[in-house]
Deep mutational scan, measured.
Amino acid sequence: MSDLPVKVIHVESGKILTGTDAPKAGQLEAWLEMNPGYEVAPR
């Protein structure tokens, strides 16, 4: 599992989470399930 943060964006508000606020790569799927409305942000 990776500890690198994955940049995500809230589709409706446009809020972007990066760095320490962003979910870790190894926890991404579970985090997205618990935080509806967020998607992986385009690079």
Rank of each mutant, 00 (worst) to 15 (best):
A41I: 11
Y38D: 03
K7Q: 11
Y38M: 05
P23V: 03
R43Q: 14
A22L: 06
E12D: 10
K7C: 13
A22Y: 02
E33K: 15
W31F: 07
G37I: 00
V6L: 11
Q27E: 15
W31A: 08
A22G: 08
A41P: 04
P5H: 11
A22R: 02
G26P: 06
V11F: 03
P36Y: 04
N35C: 01
P36Q: 03
D21N: 10
I9N: 10
Y38V: 03
M34F: 05
W31T: 07
L32I: 03
N35R: 02
D3T: 05
P23A: 00
Y38R: 02
I9L: 05
L4S: 14
L4G: 02
S2P: 03
P23R: 01
Y38H: 03
D21S: 08
L4P: 11
P42D: 15
Q27K: 09
E12N: 07
P42Q: 13
Q27G: 10
D3E: 12
M34L: 12
A41N: 03
A41C: 12
P36R: 03
E12H: 07
Q27V: 09
P23C: 01
G37V: 00
P23S: 00
R43V: 14
P23D: 01
M34K: 14
M1A: 06
P23Y: 00
P42G: 13
E12A: 13
E29N: 11
D3P: 03
K7W: 03
G37R: 02
M1W: 00
A30D: 13
E33R: 12
A22E: 04
L28M: 07
G37Q: 08
P5G: 14
V40S: 03
A30Y: 06
E33A: 12
M34P: 10
L28C: 02
H10I: 00
E39Q: 13
P36W: 01
V6R: 11
L28K: 08
W31M: 04
V6N: 09
S2R: 14
A30N: 12
G37H: 00
A30G: 10
E33G: 08
P36T: 08
P23K: 02
V6Q: 10
K7F: 06
I9C: 04
W31G: 11
H10L: 00
P5R: 15
L32K: 10
K7N: 15
E29S: 10
D21M: 12
A30R: 13
P5N: 15
P42M: 06
P42C: 10
E39I: 11
K24T: 06
Y38T: 04
G26V: 04
E33H: 11
R43W: 04
K7R: 12
E29W: 01
L32G: 05
V8I: 06
P36G: 04
Q27I: 02
